[in-house]
Structures are given as C-alpha cells and as structure tokens.
Design a protein around this nucleic acid. Structure first.
Lengths: 218, 218
DNA sequence: GCATCAATCCCACGTTCGGGGGAGGCTTGC
DNA sequence: GCAAGCCTCCCCCGAACGTGGGATTGATGC
C-alpha cells in the first residue's frame, strides 16, 4: 500500500497515545509506525520507524529542556523534508509559534474531532501547513517584515528625525537626547511624535524594534 | 453599534459585488460601508468609508497594473493595521502568495459558502489570518528560511523574562503584556525590573535595542 | 532541613511618555 | 508668491513607566 501515510507519535501522556494511536492505527490510509512517550534520541527513533509525518507533543518533559520544541529543532535540522506537526491544547499560541520557527509545519489541537486530525495529517503529507487564523497571523507578521529585500526604504525620515531615533536606539531619555543634540526637550518630543507617526508605532520600544529589524538607519 | 464590523468591498465584477454586498449588508454584526468596482485612489476611498476590514479582488483591471495586489501594497503601506483580505478563485495560489507578501493578511474563495466567508471576516477582524494549508506552507517555507545563527546567550534570562522581553520587542504596553501572558500587571513590572537589571538598561528602548543587537531571544 | 531562585503578586512615589493642540522662521519647488 | 516640508519651541494632561521597597509559593539543590 504505497499510499499509506506512516505516522510517528511522540507524547508523554498515555491517554493521548492510546486514543490517538488507536485512531491512527485503525484508519485506512494512515498507519502508526511508532509511538513514544518522550523525544530523547529522536533521530534514532525516527530513523528506526521511518515515518512520513511526525506528531510531536509540544509540552513534553525530558532532558531536552522541558518541551518538544527542541526535539523539533533537532529533527528538522537533520531531516528538513520530514513534516512535523505539533500536538497542543487550546490557547498555547506562543509555543505553537515557537514550534513553527523551530521547523514544524503545522499543528493540531488534542481535542479536535477525529476527522479534523486525519484531514490535517493528510494536508501535511500532501505538502500543506494546517494552522488556525490566529497562528497564521503571527507568522504573517514576521513574514511580511522581511518581505521586501531591497525595495524602497518605505519610510522617509528627515535628518533630525533619524538623529533622535538613533538616540532612542542608544537608550537615551528625551532629556538626554535634547542634551546630545543641543536642542530643547520640546523639540525632541516633536521629532519623536513625527517619527512615531511615520513608523506607525506608539512607544519607543516598538520604534526601536522596527528600526533595527527594518534597517532604517545607517 | 461598536461591535459591527464595517467592510469595504473592491471587485470589478458586478455580479460579485451584488451577491457579496447583499450577503454582507444583511448579516448582523457586519456592515458594508463601501463597495467599489476598482481600486483607483484606494486610499481616498478607504478614508471615506472607514472600514474595519477590506475585501479586495485579486484580479482587478485598472491603472494599477492589472490587479488588486498593487492596491494592497499602497493601502498596507499607509494603513498597516487595516486588515486586507483577498478575494480569489480556486487554484490561484501564486497570486495569493504575492498578495500576502504585499500585505494582505488572508484570503477567501469567491465560491466559498456564505458561513465560511463571514467566519473569515470575523477571523481577520479579530486579528487572525485565514488561509488554506497549502498557502500556509508556502509562507512557512520563507518564514523558516531565514533561520538565525545562534551565538552565545551572554545573559541568562528565565523563561518568563524572555516572554516579557519578547512582548516589549513587539511593542506591547505592560497592560497588554499582562493580558498576553495571562499574569497580573504587577508581575509584568516585576519581570521587567529583573530584565533591566540583568541587561543593565533603564528603559524599554534600550532593552529592545540590546535584545535585537545581541540576539538574546529566539 | 535549609538556602536559592523563579514566578507570582502588592504598594507608593516621582518621573517620563504619548498625543492633542499651536506657532514662527527657514528653505525648496512649482 | 505660496504651498510644503523641516526644524525649532511651547502648553496641557492623562497614561505609562522606572525604582524602591516588600510578600508568598513552589521547585531545585546541597
């Protein structure tokens, strides 16, 4: 049966392993080729059972610092073409996001209904990346941030505006900026107000982040 | 009615405008605030009808080089917080992908059933980014491509301290950080106090700068 | 058992920011 | 000439921040 999708499952919860394992093992078109309570020596385990798709619990205790994300990093580095899907619970978006950065291609909720799970596995095996809109949005933000390689500068700052922005990046307070540039406190505020408008930000931290990530300054 | 989502629709097909417009106009919780056959002067049109969400046909003729993607670019540059969703047909993945690069946050198929459309609009308005697995996978590839070289941490932050620091980099206020991490405002302040001590900084701008320059976070 | 530390929460206090105005002088370009 | 943009300065005012003290719980380590 060449069109059977072989799945390896990593989860420290026996209940999950049992229920998910049974579901996967009894579904036509999908076969459970390995089932593990931890991800130590994940490379060896994967090499042994040769899965097409890996399901990895996002929250697994173990020597790999307490979750499955490091296992994803290791596995993805070694086997970049092997799709990994995270198992998680509702509301754990930050770690899902970290997992995606580590190399996972998607995730599914442990309490999704069976048909969704199977559909997601087929999506992944078929080259897709199932994710919810809110996760997708986080990915999009980072994706678009570097979307423009060498395009227009996008934001045009005046000389003085660049000066105060640089000073912000250097961690100076408004008062210290005024001193460095030898202008009044109010002028500093005025420039910063304009910078915030142009960058579409609302505080110094965001301005600095956008500046450094977008290389707005020399 | 503060909980009504105001939608602006751009599509050159009268049939689509009529059917979609009627659907949106008659759904409670959603209001059609503008409906246009082209995207010329898109900024003015949007400014006039003040939508919460923009629906943009991906394939619209006009002076803006033949599709709605340039309109997205223009609109997103000026109004980065205004979510734009593309209207497309099945199998048009490359242009959907281009749209996402241009700043759209999601897309929907013109022949999706009405409930999916409405759900997607609500997703987008709620900060999500609805997309299909195959589109998501394309995004993921580029997203993971720019894996960063990991240097020495130099400074050891606890898990929670990294969380709040990341939130600072994202431009959030203390209040918003408390909300994101589901902890109290005071706890956020406490964590940030410790982060500042460890990084030897005295404000958020400096902390963000040191973080991004030193690659202290994943 | 005890020390340590991370993580959570609280209070008080002054300082700093952020956003909303406005205004005058200056150069640049149409 | 006049609009537009930049640079400079000023006011008000509320919200947010930074720093100084605490406290409690739980896990970890010796």
């Amino acid at each position: 049966m060449p069109d059977t999708i072989h799945v390896a499952l990593f989860d420290d919860s026996k209940a999950i392993r049992d229920s998910l394992g049974t579901l996967l093992g009894t579904t036509s078109g999908i076969g459970l080729c390995g089932c593990f309570p931890d991800a130590v020596q994940v490379l060896e385990k994967v090499a042994a059972c040769k899965p097409d798709v890996v399901l990895m619990d996002i929250d697994m205790p173990g020597p790999l610092n307490g979750n499955g994300i490091d296992a994803v990093r290791v596995l993805h580095a070694e086997r970049p073409d092997l799709p990994i899907m995270m198992l998680t619970v509702f509301g754990d978006e930050d770690r899902v996001y970290d997992s995606l950065r580590a190399g996972a291609v998607g995730y599914l909720l442990k309490n999704d209904d069976p048909s969704s799970l199977l559909e997601a596995i087929q999506d992944v095996h078929g080259g897709g990346a199932p994710m919810t809109p809110s996760i997708a949005r986080k990915v999009m933000l980072h994706f678009q941030r570097q979307g423009m390689p060498k395009d227009a500068p996008a934001v045009i700052l005046s000389t003085r505006e660049k000066d105060v922005l640089q000073a912000l990046v250097d961690g100076l307070s408004y008062k210290m900026i005024a001193d460095r540039l030898d202008i009044s406190f109010e002028t500093v505020r005025s420039h910063i107000k304009h910078v915030y408008e142009k960058l579409h930000v609302h505080n110094s931290a965001e301005a600095v982040a956008k500046t450094l990530k977008g290389r707005l300054l020399g």
